[in-house]
Design a protein around this nucleic acid. Sequence first.
DNA 1: ACCGCCGGGTGCC
DNA 2: ACCGCCGGGTGCC
Length: 906
Amino acid sequence: MPDSLCFKPLRSSRGSIWKYLQCGQYGRTGDSLHHFPPAFFFNSEPEEVLSIDEPSASADEEMDSAILFGVMRGNVVGLSYYTGVVNNNEMVALQREPSNPYDKNAVKVNNVNGDQVGHIKRELAAALAHIMDSRLAKVEGVVPFGAKNVFTMPVQLSFWGKDENRQVVLNHLKQYGFKLDPMAKGFGSNWITKRAGPSYSAPVLPAVQMSAEQLMTEFDKLFEDLKEDDKTREMEPAEVVGTPLLPHQKQALAWMVSRENSKELPLFWEQRNNLYYNTLTNFAEKEKPENVLGGILGDDMGLGKTLEAIALILTNFHDGKPLPVEKRENDQSYQKCNVTEKPEKCEKGNTNKLGKRKCEKGISKLHKEATCSFQKDTDFDLALAEPATKVKRKAMKKGAIVSQCSAKVVSEKKTRATLIVCPLSVLSNWIDQFEQHVKPTVHLNIYVYYGPDRSKESAVLSKQDVVLTTYSVLTHDYACRSNSPLHKVKWLRVVLDEGHTIRNPNAQQTKAAVDLEAERRWILTGTPIQNSLKDLWSLFCFLKLKPFADREWWHRTIQRPVTMGDQEGLRRLQALVKNITLRRTKTSKVNGKAVLELPERKVFVQHITLSEDERQIYESVKNESSAVIGRYFNEGTVLTHYADVLALLVRLRQLCCHPHLAKNTSFSGIPGDSTPEELQEKLVNKIKLVLSSGSDEECTICLDSLTFPVITQCAHVFCKPCICQVIRSEQVSALMHSLTELRKKNPMIKSLIVSQFTAFLSIIETPLRESGFVFVRLDGSLTQKKRIEAIQCFQSSAPESPTIMLLSLKAGGVGLNLTAASRVFLMDPAWNPAAEEQCFDRCHRLGQKKEVIITKFIVKNSVEENMVKIQDKKRELAAGAFGTKKMSSSEMKQAKIKEIKALIDI
DNA sequence: ACCGCCGGGTGCC
DNA sequence: ACCGCCGGGTGCC
């Protein structure tokens, strides 16, 4: 529930290696861990690997390192005043109620469902209030017995907190005459282990725990066998899916359909008599808990998650029947009612109709809707008077069509629309894929909810087959939810593409997504967990996974046990993830055959030697940088100057690419002293100066006044002819050589040229042009529209289409499909090997027919070589993460300092 | 009748 | 509500 998301204000916490390593504990305790491919859990993120750790401050992070102070018995009173009921051994939540008019110390006791059971007895509440308010300890309760009492019942309280608060808590309780039992021996062992036990520190009670464990193991096994079977069954998609599915895609479809139609109880629930029990919390209720009608489709990039989702939408409507779609009788109707304009050319906010490709401009959406929907009589006639009427009459004679119509009429009352939320960068991909995979004889109503003219009528959205929108729009709308049709419609299905974008539970976009109302919920992501176990929680919240959507139950039943190394907790987590996730990697097998048979991929490293001049500049800047960083080391302030240090390193890397990238710094004294803003300002001022003063500025190459002045990133002004000549003669030529050779061999081969520095891409443009290469460019500065244009242009197989794409490493992120390219030139190494891999995958993915050859340029004897060494280490680290012990933050800092030293050879 | 005892009214925080 | 607590009724054994 959204409430739990707002539970406590937290700093926005990005991942860190610390958290990543914390997860290493899975491996320490788990013997059955091979079920989780490591990549599923740990995916290091490019920009985070060398980022500074923020101090751990948030409430829930405190809980991660909490220890058990002890336990005590208390009483819950006033039971007869409240509706909440509990079972013996059921977990309860304690909640302060400072506004209580009878006692400002009041502490409420709620059951797992959030219903109030009673209050903590006054005297005890007086002692607890301060502890809870000051967060000296988290107090958790279990009702050991007496759950059916009418007036009062006992409650076993356990106190968890930071070690340093332990004594404070004990003393405070003592003042009120209470005392904590250490919990180690005997006390309460019966009640605590029997059911709710495993969530507590497991090792103290081995004997009793074993039996509980064994029980669960048996249960898990049963469950696993069942589910594994479920995941290998294949299913044919609805007839209207025009693309044949690969075996693993049919498996995904079968699994997704079975998830959506599941009548089973959710995991960890069982029926006893007339009640449904949650075996983790011992909560019970009369009403059957809803299973998650959905889950996480965690297939690797390139396996076809989009197609799998489209197949699902078309195949599984209500009662296991396909979505009743409007059939187009023949091509005539298509022609007649079509404005053949490409959706890509639509203005923002317009409706893109599949197959129809109708773009609306200014006219009301409803009106436009009518243009092609020949089952809506009035609208239809209005918009498309004569010819379509004929089409329709003709159509109505056909039985198939009639039944389609009636099916539609019946289903009209049922929730119909699927909402797809995705990052802007893949929005057009969805449109393309719908167009590609839905038979052209079918008309699907697709509404792109984006742009200033998007309809605010929820009725418009709810009658679509598919509504596409972006996370930004979703979040924006959520801010004024009363006016957001997205948050009013009761969706048949909500699909979050690149669903890991909601992994931060405090982010507005997470809340906006969780707040959507839907019968079925899906998360598509290649990386369900990026940094730690916590990432999963948001996803579970979105899926409305009972009772884990509430932070407390998630924490007590899963997160803490797992973090504390409890086997039981690990098994629960494992079962849970397996239950709702389908994950195949590129190397997964279906019936002994690889899921995806991609052409081979080869990576070559080409070492570059800097020219005499370049080496000179490099060395001088390097010495300067080393001196500055060395000073920081001596002062012990490396980490406080981290940003500066990074800037210096970036300069060095830029120098490896091209001296002009960092030219200003090599002349301007202390490197790293200008922020990007200052740089920007400098540049603007320079341009102003040049423009205002005519051309009295000198070109530093010909030392004459400027002809055709151009300005570089580093605020240097040259004559265009001069700088072109310089660039041509300089050693970017390793690339040019390869490209020219390649063109000689096969002029049709397309290449990606990748760099992290867009300025470097700009420099490369010149010799490319000179040599007559046709190229496009894709970087972060392009608008969505231009991006699509660039990609389409590049992907085109037309003879005059560009053969080269200049790509900035971070542009577009995941999801880009650049399979037209079969060569990649990586001009400079990235901090993180994963970022490079992701980039290679943009062309080495489904649809690639050719062998992919990747060339990495590495400058000899430079910061780049050192980076490659660190990359290798990181790969090792990631591979062995399971066995690694938790690093403290000071160890982490040491590791970072070491890294910096290694980079600049100090 | 300054106590004890009895039995009815009453009851979370 | 099988308790405790309160306060009124009551009063030899």
